[in-house]
Computed example of a mutant assay.
Amino acid sequence: MGTSESLHQKTTQNGSWDDIRDLPPSAKLVAKVLEYNDTMTQQQIADETLLPARTVRYALNRLDDENVVNSRVSFSDARKRLYRLDIE
Rank of each mutant, 00 (worst) to 15 (best):
L82K: 00
E35M: 04
R21Y: 06
F75E: 07
V68T: 04
L51T: 06
R21A: 14
D77V: 13
L23I: 10
W17N: 09
S6K: 10
N70W: 04
S26Y: 02
L7F: 13
R54M: 08
S76Y: 07
P25T: 00
L85Y: 02
S6L: 10
R81P: 01
K28Y: 03
T11D: 05
L85K: 02
D22H: 08
S71G: 11
D86S: 15
L50Q: 06
W17E: 08
T55D: 02
Q44I: 12
D65P: 01
F75T: 12
Q9W: 09
V73Y: 02
L51R: 01
L7V: 14
P24H: 11
S16C: 12
L63Q: 00
T49Y: 08
A31S: 11
D86T: 12
P24G: 13
W17Q: 07
Q9P: 01
V33A: 13
P52K: 09
E5G: 15
L63F: 00
I45D: 04
T12R: 13
A31T: 09
E88C: 14
T39Q: 10
I20G: 03
L7W: 10
S6H: 07
V30I: 12
A78L: 04
N61T: 10
L82Q: 01
R62P: 00
T55R: 03
V33I: 14
D47Y: 14
T11K: 11
G2S: 15
N70H: 07
A46V: 10
D18R: 07
T55N: 02
L7S: 14
Q43K: 15
E5K: 15
S71P: 00
R72A: 12
N14M: 13
R57L: 10
Q9S: 14
P25C: 00
D86Y: 09
T39M: 11
D38S: 15
M1Q: 07
E5S: 15
L82D: 00
D38P: 01
T11N: 07
M1L: 12
W17H: 06
Q42S: 10
V56Q: 03
T41Q: 07
S71Q: 10
G15F: 06
L29F: 03
Y58K: 08
V69Q: 06
S74F: 02
L63A: 01
P25W: 00
V69L: 06
D65L: 05
D65N: 10
R62Y: 04
Y58I: 05
